[in-house]
Amino acid sequence: MFSDIAQYFRTEALPHIWCPGCGIGTITAAIVRSIKTLQLDQNKVVIVSGIGCSSRMPGYLDFNTLHTTHGRALAFATGIKASRPELDVFVIMGDGDASAIGGNHFIHAARRNIDLTAIIINNSIYGMTGGQSSPMTPHDKRATTSPYGNLERPFQILEVAKAAGATYGARATAFHNQLLTKLIVNAYNNPGFSVVETISQCPVAYGRRNKFKTPADMLLWQKEHGISAGRKELGAEDFLIGEIFKAEAPEYTQEYAKLRQRLKGE
């Protein structure tokens, strides 16, 4: 039902640019539903994005929205959050956006444990530019720039986030939409840098080069291979969904507020 979340959309900005069968639309709905569930003040929510298909999302949403440059969304969001910590800042990135050109900002946002909710929409490909391989394209899979199969190994982005100091990491898929909504709520509630990796489908730029006949095949693949912890032993193409890690660490803007307070006392 769109009507239950229509108030969060700029309907004048629709229709969106996403291809039929793309996963970003249902992920958008999950993000908006999580904001609704959290009952956040629409005027205090900021949605920041970088460049790519998924980064067009904020334009359709009726919040304070910022569509930045390629890979830089977290750096812009850091400025927003550090300057005005009471704002609720969500950051939408694609896999190439977050892990390639934005990789440095990603590890340092994690290291600072700044209270941002980062949602990485991982469709394993650069979709907007027509299907080039990204640092999260699986090994051996095909893309226009890896026509013989991807030689490189993909990032495990949540492992990166954890190692760099993030305090919440979770994974869902476009198919596991209710789980995704729940995980985004939990990610928001974690007072620190939180990452939700969302496996999505790009039927046009990835699926048709990698033996997926229809978008539905890709969703079925997500259903089959996205495994909750403990359900079964992971096979070669399987991946865990649900909460992957949680940790406690000082949060950047709170630490800065403490510094200001301490200096006042001196």
Partner: peptide, 16 residues
């Protein structure tokens, strides 16, 4: 973390 991020951060802050 770098010069690019610094420019990004001040734009974000200015928007607030």
């Amino acid at each position: 973390e770098d010069e690019i991020g610094s420019m990004a951060a001040i734009i974000g802050a200015s928007l607030t």
